[in-house]
Design a protein around this nucleic acid. Structure first.
Lengths: 111, 111
DNA sequence: CGTGTAAGGAATTCTGACACG
DNA sequence: CGTGTAAGGAATTCTGACACG
């Protein structure tokens, strides 16, 4: 029997980090970080005052993006990959939801 | 039987949150947050420019502090508790370290 | 295409102090 | 003791643009 307690995603997904800190954390310039947003690769939260707030998940994503760009991948292509991945995830979600409804109707049998 | 506890402390302890965000997260005013630092209850990182950066652990600590103050506990008393707790932790650490050295010398037997 | 930079403005944060109690 | 506030300054962030290539 295995009991696994998942990583605390609450911290990872909270958008609380300013662009200056993200710059330090990733080694990217603020210019680069803003540009990747312009290309719709990252979506920081915006405060009422207009400044950007990133999550740790965003920070990790930014590093991945930067690596791909270093490898010669264009932002447009990276965007395409992300859209595709998102669709796969949604399909998976949908599948799980349907299964959940089936279970709700016929009862859940677990090995 | 295996019990795995992940608790990603890497995110929790990184000092990356500005005082404004901490204020939103905790509901405390910036004045309160700065005062608790003055009373040596929290220790944010300082950027070269002089501004404070807090971790999620700090945020949680601040909430606990605020609760105690609401209960009428004075900052000085809270400080005393923290110092005592720290000493207990260090004693525990020391004990573990000693045991580690013993194990290193005589071999580790695990049940 | 991806990034650097100077420009001017706006939002954020800092400290020390006076105030109340 | 714990917190509010006005004050002036410094650090941070924002946008739009010009530049290179």
């Amino acid at each position: 029997m295995v009991i696994l307690l998942a990583a605390d995603s609450s911290y990872k997904d909270k958008k609380v980090i300013t662009i200056g800190i993200v710059s330090e954390l990733t080694g990217l310039t603020e210019r680069q970080i803003r540009y990747y947003e312009e290309r719709k690769l990252v979506f920081p939260y915006r405060t009422p005052g207009g400044s950007r707030r990133y999550s740790f998940a965003d920070v990790e994503l930014l590093v991945e993006i930067a690596n791909k760009i270093e490898d010669g991948v264009q932002t447009y292509e990276i965007r395409q990959e992300m859209v595709k991945q998102k669709k796969r995830n949604e399909a998976e979600e949908h599948k799980k939801m349907i299964q959940g409804q089936i279970n709700a109707h016929f009862g859940i049998r677990k090995k």
